[in-house]
Design a protein around this nucleic acid. Sequence first.
DNA 1: AATGAATGAGAGTTCATTCAT
DNA 2: GATGAATGAACTCTCATTCAT
Lengths: 208, 208, 208, 208
Amino acid sequence: MTETTADQSRRLGAKGARTRQRILDAAEAVFVEYGYHDASIVKITETAGVAQGTFYIYFPGKHELFAELVDDLNRRVRRAMAQASDAHRTRLAAERAGFAAYFGFVGEHPGLYRIMRQAEFVAPEQLRRHYDRIVSGYSSRLAAAMDTGEIPRGDPELMAWSLMGLGEMVGMRWVLWQQHEAVPDTVLAGTGEIIARILGVPEPPVPD
Amino acid sequence: MTETTADQSRRLGAKGARTRQRILDAAEAVFVEYGYHDASIVKITETAGVAQGTFYIYFPGKHELFAELVDDLNRRVRRAMAQASDAHRTRLAAERAGFAAYFGFVGEHPGLYRIMRQAEFVAPEQLRRHYDRIVSGYSSRLAAAMDTGEIPRGDPELMAWSLMGLGEMVGMRWVLWQQHEAVPDTVLAGTGEIIARILGVPEPPVPD
Amino acid sequence: MTETTADQSRRLGAKGARTRQRILDAAEAVFVEYGYHDASIVKITETAGVAQGTFYIYFPGKHELFAELVDDLNRRVRRAMAQASDAHRTRLAAERAGFAAYFGFVGEHPGLYRIMRQAEFVAPEQLRRHYDRIVSGYSSRLAAAMDTGEIPRGDPELMAWSLMGLGEMVGMRWVLWQQHEAVPDTVLAGTGEIIARILGVPEPPVPD
Amino acid sequence: MTETTADQSRRLGAKGARTRQRILDAAEAVFVEYGYHDASIVKITETAGVAQGTFYIYFPGKHELFAELVDDLNRRVRRAMAQASDAHRTRLAAERAGFAAYFGFVGEHPGLYRIMRQAEFVAPEQLRRHYDRIVSGYSSRLAAAMDTGEIPRGDPELMAWSLMGLGEMVGMRWVLWQQHEAVPDTVLAGTGEIIARILGVPEPPVPD
DNA sequence: AATGAATGAGAGTTCATTCAT
DNA sequence: GATGAATGAACTCTCATTCAT
């Protein structure tokens, strides 16, 4: 399931691929629970059920493993959002559905935040890419919607960053801190209203 | 530069107070440059120009020092925002001024972000307090403005979190990543527009 | 030389077991020479010829190592005494032989004392167990001899503690302080006489 | 009350003498509670209510302070025993009274043991002197009693060490470990019986 | 393909001692 | 006579990484 961008020069047999995946899964769990620095290789390999040495067969080091995980999570979150918003006709409805999917994903993988917030010092490049990718998705969709006149003119990039800030904060506040599985419905509704305002279509929320 | 009001059980003489401050300033710089974990006591004390042992005269440990710094930064950023927004009559103008002050502060102390983002794992309680305090400020001001009818009804808390998300993302994107001293004027103007939308007063921006 | 029966949760391969033993032997020597506190892990690992980190593969910490050593020494001294006294028919003869063996052991391992005397503050529980075990051996043998009428009635536990005190002091005085390999024969004879008195069989000493 | 053998070159005024004594008293308490190594100068000076620097006005260092305390305790215990045994006519009665006084002293100052047992590595010379002095007291009294025929011949020195071993073990077992204030009466009686046996006058115990 | 053993640099922290005031 | 501040060497322990098998 987890694909790797980094060159995986070494082609793996079936058993090797399985081992690698076990380590990757273990790493996600351990990073989420302990944070990058307190997540030791011992903890990861123990969780994965392999010997310490085995780790270095599949990964050049702790840092590269982390970077791979960040990219991984980014891919998964974007896929979840894209799938959710695809089915909708209006921009507003699509973005709202994307947000809902995002909050759902966050509820299922609260580690997303916890890993991303670490990345500032550990893998800044990956972090930046993470934000850039999400924003550029928003941004181009918004620009297109402006071109068709569906939403009024504005700075699509700035709006995109705003939307992402909104998503992060609401997710942190109502999912991560509240240990909820997803953002409560009332909050979700309120979020939809604010999204509408940001997009410049502040009609009373109407379902798709 | 860093002022500390936090309880300093041990009363210090003039010399001691100066040394403590030197350590605090050094610590901020080192945490900002290296992040919590790679900011060693050696680096901090060397930067401060004192011996390692001296550190432990003034702080119980690395973690407590960090927590104090987080609270400290929070206090400073809120003070800067409050001063800037005090002078304005409309809510919108005040919030815009607050944001401008915030971005200015971030430009002067880009370390603010870098330290806060660490706090998730290092001092989660302080981090939460940091956000809570800022949000509760926004929130009560917005509620008051709704009561007077200055801005339309809405969920003030959710709006507050959105505003903070906006601020964080824009600050990160245009100050931290661009190494700018402040958010460019065009972005500032665009931000003002989005703030207006969120507050529900999307008139074309007019200066105070 | 040092054998360990204590629970070694981690099962070791042959190489690991050898390394562990090397550390244990080195530790005994270093504790004996420097005492618990001045016996640093550096000194121990250097003596053992391994890296510092290796120590922590085999022992959770300095203190646990020390505790294991104390139990170890206790086991060895009791074994030596038991073997020596087994062959004798009368209680008096057996105890005398046990003492002789004890003094012999002390002569071969003068560190015994030096380690035990530390234990008061470092591992009080182990120390107490050490004394309790030795005393309970004495005690039950004396009680049995009273039952058969071989020695007159008396408080066997109190007699046991007295015997142990006698042994410790004589060992300290004539072996440890004199750097002798064993208690001189004249002292040994005198000790035998006092043991006889304590047991209540003050006949002139006769070999078995 | 505490006299010092070490040269006190610096003659002290009344205030200085009082401060010195305060430190000495604090040190005893702290050494007893924490043991030599964990008894830090900070703890001692804090207990004494003086600044750290003050300590070094009165003592050259931690080690010398400890050595002085050892000699001090030795003097006090011998004085207590001497006073108690002075009034008695027979050797046996006197020694029994001495033991009782010893156990009483130990009950009042359980730190005696705890400090002495440390001394093996910290101040071995003082420790040896401690034992030598006590033993030589016993020894000469026993020799005198042999000369007058009050007790049968035997090796007085060896008997003296035996007696001391008895005292240490019984004191450790029934006072220190039991947290009693003194050895229980039954044990005291039993001890008297064993003393009688060691002295070679094993008549049924008769009060003085 | 995998393992267990070993490494050693570096971490945070303590504390006896010194010294200027 | 006393203090508070400062020192720095030494300590125990952790952990990413390497390597022989």
